[in-house]
Nucleic acid binder design. Sequence first.
DNA 1: TCGAATTAAGAAAACGTTTTCTCAGTAGAC
DNA 2: GTCTACTGAGAAAACGTTTTCTTAATTCGA
Lengths: 336, 336
Amino acid sequence: MSLTIKDIAKMAGVSITSVSRVLNNKTEGISESTRQRVLKIIEQHNYRPNAIARSMITKNTKTIGLIIPDIRNPFFSDLARGIEDVASESKYSILLCNTDSTLGKIIDYLWLLKEKNVDGMIFACSDPTLNREVHTFVKQNNIPVVIVDRGLEDQMYSGVFIDNEKAAYMATKHLLELSHTRIGCISGPSFIKNSNERLEGYFKAHQEFGVPTDKSLIRVGEYVMEGGYQAAKELLEQTDVTALFAFNDLMAFGVYQAAEELGLKIPDDISVVGFDNLKYNLLLHPKLTTMEQPIYEIGEVATKLLLEQIEEGKSDQIKSVFLDTKLIVRESTKKR
Amino acid sequence: MSLTIKDIAKMAGVSITSVSRVLNNKTEGISESTRQRVLKIIEQHNYRPNAIARSMITKNTKTIGLIIPDIRNPFFSDLARGIEDVASESKYSILLCNTDSTLGKIIDYLWLLKEKNVDGMIFACSDPTLNREVHTFVKQNNIPVVIVDRGLEDQMYSGVFIDNEKAAYMATKHLLELSHTRIGCISGPSFIKNSNERLEGYFKAHQEFGVPTDKSLIRVGEYVMEGGYQAAKELLEQTDVTALFAFNDLMAFGVYQAAEELGLKIPDDISVVGFDNLKYNLLLHPKLTTMEQPIYEIGEVATKLLLEQIEEGKSDQIKSVFLDTKLIVRESTKKR
DNA sequence: TCGAATTAAGAAAACGTTTTCTCAGTAGAC
DNA sequence: GTCTACTGAGAAAACGTTTTCTTAATTCGA
């Protein structure tokens, strides 16, 4: 089996205490000469301490749990990479948890992460019935948590967000300025907070422009391609929309498919605005006008927040960071 | 702090041994009545054993390391999901390691995973200088490993693959059958084994059709969009290719961009074939003809293989599984 | 009814670290 | 020269489990 601290101690002719001291760069209780001797043996044998045993006593695992709906969603893989990059810089590793936004899976993972003693969690799932349950769990076990993208009870946790209302307002405004007055809206599920916030922005822009809104132009999709496709198909067939605002790019992709199927030309017959600015919408034709959000950076900032919380024990201080969004006007929108 | 087995023992009025026995469903040394009593206390207090302490003695962590270049690459996020799904079914969790195919990062992660005592690893990175180093590391620490997508010294490990040569042969044949004789080839880096295998298939098809190959039509890209874009631009500007075979879809995406930039129409001016059949190539126009490989399933099978190896100690038996590929003919290829 | 076999249960060791406590030796102060 | 303070080092406890070993109590066979 692997070498242990005991083996190293024996080889160096010192106690395991001394080896531990050099391992942890302690200066007290050890002379420079024995430190060097031990260091040499460690080096020679490529010894690395067993993280499990270490965790046993230090109570930290240098691991953080990442709870997301689905890593295949490019939004979350981008986010995950941002997270992993800053985590690994501080020698933390990340445990991947795909929940499909499912109550059962989320709870299961919460327990798992607790059993495995993760030092903290980044949470990007939400479910109405869940909020309470997750909340009590987290508070009860007081695990550091940072919320991302979709908040649960916001003021209770640190989190990294964008101003969803403002972003949606800007996107809608863009369409209104292009003289569209019948703007279909493809929202995400209503239990996801950002959906409602974006909806607010959508309304606000209409109000400001004195354009009446029409409930029948608002549909809810699943935040994936198929969701956008379904909603778009309905809207395009059953209503007189001249523009469509999808609350994420994935759904906007679905809009493109629906439009094509119905023989509608973008942007001539129908203008389309997305949300996220995923890398892969470069593939679209015509290029998608969309509201960019700094996904990777959200992951970075969230992780920094979490590590701060973990390492400085700041789990009581709640910090919300808001990052900027930016409307990227491309070819999918046009004056009516 | 959290409850420990000691607390439960005290509350139930039994020894920790007994609690441990019910925790692990041991039948010996415990009567049904005390089992029930203990079970009730456990239930009541929602006690879960500390996985770290458990690992300490059982020597397993129910964790597997996933080493990939970049989770943002849809190929790998799809793979990761397949892996996570079957892993979590068996109560294993996965530790995410993005290496960017970088020597330093791979080695660092290897050590990390060893320190953390993962039960096994799924490995999808390769690097020529690395093979030896990774190999000796893995063998030295005898950690169960399953290779995926890109082999290192193949016969040494279990792995899940496709028949790259055959797949590339089929793809090339498709183009040859459409009377293309000047077929550009955008390969992946030559240190990645599948690139060379696919190249073989490319050659073989030409040979079979009696069409001479031309080294100048073969370029190497990075297996990402930009790689495909660069290579395609060169090929389209400097040579007389009438068709392009990109060794993955991401590069094929780049080909589309290059073609557009040069004002070339697909498939009229240039036929394009990709590889992978990523979900997002539904966004492309015209739709991409590509060689499908069952990415998610590769992840599933790889994990099953790994778990088998872990749980049945079959790390000596080497098993290679080959999954099928399928040419999906869509709109990006056309008779010359 | 007695010894053997079986069962239920607990005590203690073990896992590989870090941390606390103790101690011997030496330097410094007077 | 003695006492105090400090330094380098090790012994042992601790972390929360599982596992091995031991023991007490019960059942069983004759």
